[in-house]
């Protein structure tokens, strides 16, 4: 029993060490919580409860406070979703340019394989409908273009 659980423990310890390394880089900054959360999210694809606890402890915050911030922002997730993600803008301008009519096709193309997320305004109102994949922005999408984009992920 003991021997089997050892690698698992080592992984947990390694993960925590990595989180602590990220924290150490930012600790001296003013208001370091959000930058740390971004870095952890980028490194692990999420800020899980263990990482939240480590961050809370390092910044002398309560677990509840860190949880409140993580759950407030869509950019932070408490569990990793390994699927590719596409953020589709469905704010007023993109709606006016017909994004709502394309949603069903995009959802069909995404299925369970791609995570289709809604966002409200990517700042591309004049060239909508627009979407974001990672750091890449995609404008002037039509239904075909959007479906192709989803399929390409």
């Amino acid at each position: 029993m003991e021997r089997q659980s050892e690698p698992a423990i080592r992984i947990v310890v390694d993960l925590q060490r990595k989180v602590l390394e990220i924290i150490a880089v930012r600790l001296g900054e003013e208001a370091p919580l959000l930058p740390i959360l971004h870095d952890v999210q980028a490194a692990f694809g999420c800020v899980d409860e263990a990482a939240q606890t480590t961050i809370a402890d390092a910044l002398n915050l309560s677990r509840a406070e860190v949880h409140g911030v993580v759950s407030f922002y869509h950019d932070f997730t408490s569990s990793a979703d390994l699927r590719p993600a596409l953020h589709l803008c469905r704010a007023e301008a993109c709606q006016a340019r017909g994004v709502e009519r394309m949603v069903a096709a995009a959802e069909a193309a995404a299925g369970q394989r791609v995570e289709l997320k809604t966002t409200y305004c990517l700042g591309l109102c004049s060239v909508g409908p627009a979407a974001r994949v990672g750091d890449g922005l995609h404008a002037r999408l039509d239904e075909t273009g959007l479906v192709k984009l989803v399929q390409s992920l």
């Binding site: 677990r63 509840a64 949880h67 409140g68 759950s71 407030f72």
Partner: peptide, 17 residues
């Protein structure tokens, strides 16, 4: 305590999820 989530999903939460 904290407020978990935002907007309509806001809810009081003790500790973490």
């Amino acid at each position: 305590l904290t407020i978990d989530g935002r907007g309509f999903a806001s809810k009081v939460s003790a500790g973490q999820a």
